[in-house]
């Protein structure tokens, strides 16, 4: 007895995906091949560029339209540099998108404390702004020892970040320079 595709779909259910076919108690060797379905079939595709080294490989993210969550990432086959290929790091981008160890809340560690406390964003940004102003006002140098005008905040420093987009880098440098900060570094030297 040969199983037709129609029969098969009737038995297994049209939504069966990939290896979920297993366990049916069937000899599937007679089943036509196209009954295997892609788990990314109904996902939305978005292009991005890998976040690790500076080759700039194209990546496609597959997002489940119902949950809005990324369900798979793979190399962008149209990309002229990587042509769909990726290294171990690029190929693991999915685990950046879906990772239970990611930090999802603002944390605060008080002076001399041994623990983190979760805090709201609003509170944190207001508190940081207060620290910035206090330190800036306390350490601001209008003139140096030679009497030259320097308008510089000597008490605050910043490192970062090559992990940000150009637009974020630009406004970050704008903010730092408006504050008068000169200790500005990023990953170029490490």
């Amino acid at each position: 007895m040969k199983l037709t595709r129609r029969d098969f779909l009737k038995i297994s259910g049209a939504a069966t995906a990939g290896l979920a076919l297993s366990g049916m108690g069937l000899d599937l060797s007679t089943v036509e091949a196209y009954s295997w379905q892609l788990r990314t079939k109904d996902a939305k595709e978005t292009t991005t560029i890998c976040c690790y080294c500076s080759v700039g490989c194209g990546i496609i993210c597959h997002t489940d339209k119902k949950t809005g969550q990324v369900i798979y990432t793979e190399g962008d086959a149209d990309h002229p540099i990587n042509g769909g290929s990726l290294c171990a790091k690029g190929a693991s981008s999915y685990q950046i998108a879906q990772n239970e160890k990611r930090m999802t809340k603002v944390l605060y560690r008080a002076p001399n404390s041994s623990k983190w406390e979760a805090k709201p964003w609003d509170w944190a940004l207001k508190e940081i702004a207060k620290r910035v102003k206090k330190t800036r006002d306390a350490t601001f140098t209008l003139k140096n020892q030679k009497g030259q005008v320097v308008n510089r905040c000597d008490g605050i420093a910043s490192v970062g970040s090559a992990a940000m987009d150009n637009e974020e880098c630009w406004i970050y440098q704008a903010m730092l320079r408006a504050l008068g900060i000169v200790y500005i570094e990023h990953q170029a030297r490490i």
Partner: peptide, 17 residues
Amino acid sequence: IDRVSNGLKPACVKVCP
């Protein structure tokens, strides 16, 4: 086989630089 049956290459082949 799910990828191949849908006209794609196996994941390990597609990813190879």
